[in-house]
Design a protein around this nucleic acid. Structure first.
Lengths: 156, 156
DNA sequence: TCTTGTCTTGTTATGTTATAACGTTCATTC
DNA sequence: GAATGAACGTTATAACATAACAAGACAAGA
């Protein structure tokens, strides 16, 4: 089924936070992973923000909530969430976003509005890269697909 | 004509350096841009390296050659070269590579070997992103397409 | 010619992002 | 209850990047 990119359109935000948390809980329970308080809170922060946040911004929130206030605290929680697909890193922004499709094993692509900073997660459907890689014998393990431009609301 | 990705295969390296420099010279002459000594040398360094280099590595080389040794010296030269398409930035690596197709106005894609660090430039042929963007009303201005994996020489 | 403006380079200083390395705690296992 | 391993916190530092200012080169126009 076609996936409608979210991020630029309004939606049931409380619902999508709850959904994101539940997906993470279920996944961790199923796989025996520890969704500890820092990790849980980190994911909540990103889900609530519903936009890309730098690690230090996340860290500031965490420390407000009584967690440590040193960089590794945030980076480790983010790494855990990223490793298991609950959070994606946006290379272009050196920032992190909560995954819009938790649970699905996917290769995300992003659209980044250079005006308002919002980020929408989309679907990657085999780019020319795949063909190019095959041709040259390169084995792809991960891809970074990020488009920068103007979202519908920021166009003149 | 199909573009064969370079970077993982052997080739006439001296030739490609000369070709890269000539392309930049011609382009700058045509457009009235100043290919000053630092800028020229920066491009040479990247062409010779024939792989991604961090700004500080470039800077170290520049300062060996008698140019300034403060970060802005390198970042400015790199920005100029990037603006005019002689150099690309690899977001994933926070690094820069000389363009493999100088002169062509293109939207590059890269394959990055996580083992040897080599980077090959490839061609982007409309990813799923284009469709997704149109659907959501997003206007793409620039794209970052980077694949990480293993190059032919680094596979077991 | 002089002056004005633009472009380039260099500097100082600082800001931002990220990780290595070590100690402590706590739950689990033997 | 000792050993193990995972998570968290800390200190310290590394790596990447830019703002803001001064000085020189050079061309255009008064």
């Amino acid at each position: 089924m076609p996936y409608k990119p979210t991020g630029f359109s309004s939606h049931d935000h409380d619902g999508c936070i709850a959904q994101g948390m539940q997906a993470a809980e279920a996944f961790c329970a199923a796989k025996g992973l520890q969704l500890t308080p820092v990790r849980r809170r980190t994911l909540e922060i990103l889900l609530q923000a519903h936009e890309a946040m730098g690690a230090y911004d996340v860290l500031a929130r965490l420390s407000q909530d009584g967690f440590g206030d040193k960089p590794p605290v945030a980076y480790r929680a983010l790494a855990f969430l990223q490793d298991h697909g609950f959070v994606h890193r946006i290379e272009r922004l050196n920032a992190f976003v909560a995954c819009a499709r938790p649970g699905a094993d996917h290769d995300p692509a992003f659209m980044i509005c250079r005006s308002c900073g919002k980020v929408a997660e989309s679907e990657l459907s085999g780019s020319g890269l795949t063909a190019s890689a095959r041709e040259s014998g390169f084995v792809i393990e991960q891809t970074v697909i990020e488009a920068e431009g103007l979202c519908p609301g920021c166009q003149p």
